[in-house]
């Protein structure tokens, strides 16, 4: 497999003693869009920060396009563009100047045409000579992306790119991300929304408490995650599930007062209508119904317990 980022046995313990990453192994394929999915505090930012050189690793190593990020940091870093989660921009500089600064910093000779092209792609051209302080939050986010693309990186990291971003920018961003991939750029983004990963990624990695729990093709994962639950709150508790309901994935909880039905949203039919009909026939009355999608949290729990 041709991997452009190769993380092996990477661990990070912060000075506070907190271990943010535990023996992470991860390979990103050349040219893919990879989504790193995990709840807040999972270690996504830490992982990206180490790969990009902002945080020192405690142990383990990382190769970027074949170059060790520490011993061969120049070659490794010149390939990488980074957009952080926070809106940390210059203040008094113009959009054009801050982009030119970024490009130079990454060792590339000036190229006004490329700068203009990136600004055009991100709808920033009319703000080219505006000072950053005069821009809105969404525009600042665009500037950060533009800065990261100023030196034509082969690998682009986007840390929570859609946090607090309006619909329009989100759409533009996905369009841009797909366009970049068509030009051979590998994109790694983090998110805590399944929907977002589902929309854009080729492969998805799930991280929780500093550990990579699984990495899978998006389709395969969505199949796994596409379970939904229907909870029926019964009028009268029952001791066991009647044999006539064997064909359904049912579970009793709440001392027999709740009946939980699990079904696949990707299936031909949900099976809800026949189930309700059968319940009626068995004389099981319910006072309320609650439907829930398996949340990310629940998925983590189930994945983690599955593994152990």
């Amino acid at each position: 497999m041709d991997s452009i980022i190769s993380v092996s046995n990477l661990s990070k313990t912060y000075a506070s003693g907190f271990q943010a990453l535990r023996n992470v192994d991860l390979d990103i394929r050349r040219g893919e869009i990879f989504a790193l999915l995990g709840p807040n505090g999972a270690g996504k930012t830490t992982l990206i920060s180490i790969i990009c050189g902002i945080v020192n690793p405690s142990s383990g190593n990382v190769l970027a396009d074949g170059h060790d990020i520490i011993s061969d940091y120049r070659a490794a870093r010149s390939k990488i563009g980074l957009v952080l989660q926070e809106l940390t921009t210059d203040v008094f500089e113009t959009v054009r100047d801050t982009m030119s600064f970024s490009r130079g910093l990454f060792g590339k000779p000036p190229d006004p045409a490329h700068i203009e092209k990136v600004m055009t792609d991100l709808s920033l051209l009319d703000k080219a000579d505006t000072k950053i302080q005069a821009l809105s939050g969404g525009m600042k986010r665009r500037v950060l992306i533009a800065k990261a693309l100023a030196h034509e990186p082969k690998i682009l990291f986007l840390d929570e790119p859609t946090a607090g971003v309006d619909v329009e920018l989100r759409r533009d961003m996905w369009e841009m991300v797909r366009g970049l991939r068509e030009n051979g750029v590998t994109i790694i983004l983090t998110t805590h929304y399944i929907e977002e990963a589902e929309l854009i990624a080729d492969r998805i990695g799930i991280i929780n408490k500093g550990e990579i729990i699984l990495v899978e093709e998006k389709e395969a994962l969505m199949q796994k995650l596409g379970k939904r639950q229907l909870t029926l709150y019964l009028q009268n508790p029952i001791a066991s599930i009647p044999a006539g309901l064997n064909g359904f994935d049912l579970e009793l909880s709440g001392d027999g007062s709740e009946l939980v039905y699990t079904f696949d949203v990707h299936g031909e039919e949900t099976g809800i209508a026949p189930l309700l009909k059968l319940l009626n026939e068995h004389g099981i009355d319910y006072r309320d119904i609650h439907s829930s999608e398996s949340s990310l949290e629940e998925i983590f729990v189930s994945l983690v317990t599955e593994k152990r």
Binding site: C52, G53, I54, L84, T88, V91, G107
Partner: peptide, 12 residues
């Protein structure tokens, strides 16, 4: 301001 991240992540 936090913009130091760019210098830290640059090949310098």
């Amino acid at each position: 301001t936090g913009t130091i991240y760019e210098v830290l992540s640059a090949p310098v």
